[in-house]
Every structure is written in C-alpha cells, then in structure tokens.
Design a protein around this nucleic acid. Structure first.
Lengths: 217, 217
DNA sequence: AATAACATACATACTGGTCGGTATGTTAAG
DNA sequence: CTTAACATACCGACCAGTATGTATGTTATT
C-alpha cells in the first residue's frame, strides 16, 4: 500500500505542472495536493518547504529537458548540424506548449532575480545545455561538417538565445505561425554553419598564412 | 495641495517599479502605497482594480520603452543598420538592469498565458516594435544601405528574438560578460545586413534574370 | 513465532500573515 | 453647498507552514 518513492515522484510531477502553469510563487501547495490526492502532512514529510520542493523540481525534472531533447540526440547523431536542425524542427507546436513556453526559461525569468538558490541551479542547466551544443559543434569541426571559422561557444549561445527568443515571441503571440517563422529562420541560419562541401576531414583550407579569422556566425 | 494628475502618475511609476521587481501577481498594492505615501482610498479612486492599474502601466509606461529606445532613434538616423547597432550597443549593462531584464518581456512572460487583456496589450507593443524595425529596414533597402535579398519582417523578428534571448541569458547568468558577448554577436550579425558597398541607390544588381532569391538572414 | 519497541509515512486541524478590495468617513477646491 | 480627491478601518479569502495524531512497516529480543 505505501510507496513513498511513488508519492514523492507524483508530488514532483504535479508540482512541475503547477509551477509550469502558474509560476513558482503563484503555485499553490493546495492545488498540488488536490491533483495528487496527497495530504499536506505527506508533502511536508518529503519536502522541507515549498522552496525545497521547487529545487527538487528543477534538479529532477527540469534539468532533464535539455538533456533529453538536445544533448542525447546530439550525442547519437553523426552530423551535429543535421541533429540540431532535427531538434529545432521537432519542437512542439501544440497550442498549449506554445502558450506555456519553455519551462526552463519560465522559471529562470521568474526566479533568477529573486532567489540565488534557484538561479544557481538554473545556471547549471543552461551551462550543460550550452556546453553540450558547443561540444557537438567542435566535434563537427574536426569531422569537417561544421565551418572551422566559428567559435563553438559563441555559436551555441547564439542558438540558445535565438531559440528562446522566438519561443517567447510565439508564447506572447500565441500563434503557431510565429513559431514556424522562427524555426525556419533558425534552420536557415543553422544551414549556414555547414562546412563548404569541398572541405573534408584532413583537408587543408587555403588561407593567408597564419591568419585564422575568428568570425561571427 | 491636491494634484490628482500627479498622484496618478506617481502611482503608475511606483506601480511599474514594483511590477518590474516582483512581477504583476506578486506585486503588492501595499508596497506601491508605501512607496508613494498614497492611501488605498486614493489608489482605488484612480484605478478600478489591480488589473486596471496593470493595464495602465502597460499602456502608459511600458509601451513607451521601445518607442523611446528603438523607434525614435530609428526614425532620426539615416542608416538603419548604424542606428540599430547604436541602439543595441546602448543597452544598459548596469547590474541591476541586467538582473532585472526587459520589463516588456518580463510581463509578457508572466501574463500572456494567464490573461488575454494583458496579452493583447503586449502584442500591440511587440507589433509596433517589430513593424518599426521592419519599416526602417525597408527604408534602408530603398536607400541602398540594406541588403535587398532579405525580408524586412523576418529580419526584424530575428533581431528581436536574438535581443530578448540574450537578455534572458544575461539575466539568468547575472553576468555582464554574457550580455557583452550577446551584443558583439548581434552587432556582427547586423553588419552582415549591409548592402555591398558597390551597390548604391539607383544602381542595378547583377543577377540571373528574374531570379530574386529571397534568402534567410 | 510472538511481540515489544521504534521509525517511517502519512492524515487532520489549525495558525498567523498577507492579499486585494470595500464601506464609510473626511477634507480640500470651486 | 457640492463633489472631487482622498483617508481609515475593516473584511473574507487564500496561503505556507505546523502541531499533533495515527497507521504502517521494520527490527530486536526472547
């Protein structure tokens, strides 16, 4: 009958949904309890406070999102550009998702200026996301599938900024068209990161001696 | 002694600050009153409700921000690319501003999924911002300072998404460096929008007959 | 195997505080 | 004298958190 692990996970899931819908500060403990048929005593047995629950939601649920949706596909795929294009195009255009926005961004937007403990946890997630993309791009550069003149860290940050920026615009507009335009533009930009076809692994690029131009994307 | 107009404006200003700090739902009427030395009776004489105050803040304060910081400089300047670069580089890097983020985005992020009245007002502001940039780019195209192969609307949306995306990353990181990298990348991209030097007003571009390539930025 | 002792995993009822909003009163201006 | 522009006191709702109680499962002892 008793299954504390399951109780905890259900609280985390319901908590995530409630926080996603309402934001952390407006999330109601009572709503989470009603959604799970768990009582207050049980919740406060598993978590010290609402903040503690929030931190657990960030670490155990939100942190998995970029891991599952970005980093894992990036590791599997051979060509990082193709993988990134696939990832971006695979983003949900369901009205509820467009309307809700990105859970990671929502929380960061709300809590980062207010609470250092939240912020640090969110920074960790952003960094992992950023680093994962940069690493994939570096791999692509050594494979010869990604242009060698771009700085992987900058390019990764650029992509994340664009992606989240368009997500916000679409969320506000509540219009799938806005999001589709965004995807098209991001994909177009991603294609421009491909190394020219004639350059392949091991080949040497013709350029002025010693002048490696670190160029913007 | 009595100055209802001034009272109203002070409430709007203090309300804006409080909403900027805390978000709309967590903004406390009592905090606004304490900041202004206005009493509750006075506030509810000028505004029907907290929502009504919020709408007034959006329309009378937040709407002015892109107008003042983007559209006016864009109208004055001759070359829209130079103007945009100047605007982006002029963005405040003061820690409090980086930490606080963009007021327009903050509100949109919080309220758009929850309240249609807020959302519509914010959409209007975004549209004006977007349209202002697109118009300036079109002007630049006919002047010969902006590449003719790009779609002004798409380019404007791209810029806004990038700008807000980097603002968010910097807000979360609370690091001016992140914001500076963002500015550098945005400016680099903006430079790529310039028409090639040899093309000037009235000149004809050499290209395959009738094939006008509508290209991504 | 039986059971005492204990810790785990909940359940219920309640508290203090904050919130937006209002009813009613008061004062300044014309 | 009227009314616009406030001021004060208060209300009910909600909220996170807690005090206290209880049932279930585990372990130790004999």
């Amino acid at each position: 009958m008793r299954d504390p692990e399951r109780t905890r996970k259900r609280l985390l899931q319901a908590g995530f949904r409630e926080v996603y819908r309402s934001g952390f500060r407006s999330a109601s403990i009572d709503t989470i309890l009603a959604a799970t048929n768990v009582t207050k005593g049980a919740l406060y047995y598993h978590f010290d406070s609402k903040e503690d629950l929030g931190h657990a939601i960030v670490e155990e649920i939100i942190a998995k999102l970029p891991q599952d949706n970005w980093l894992r596909p990036l590791q599997r795929g051979k060509n990082p550009i193709d993988a990134l294009i696939g990832i971006v195009q695979a983003t949900s255009v369901r009205p509820e998702d467009v309307k809700g926005g990105c859970p990671l961004v929502n929380l960061a937007q709300e809590m980062s200026p207010l609470d250092e403990q939240f912020r640090k946890r969110l920074v960790t997630i952003f960094n992992a996301w950023h680093e994962g993309i940069a690493t994939a791009l570096r791999r692509g550069q050594s494979q010869g599938t990604v242009r060698r003149d771009l700085v992987p860290e900058d390019t990764a940050g650029f992509l994340i900024a664009m992606y989240e920026g368009y997500a916000l615009l679409a969320k506000n507009a509540q219009d799938a068209k806005v999001w589709n335009v965004g995807i098209r533009n991001i994909v177009g930009w991603l294609r421009s990161l491909r190394a020219p076809r004639q350059l392949r692994r091991g080949e040497r690029r013709l350029m002025a001696k010693g002048r490696v131009v670190k160029q913007r994307q």
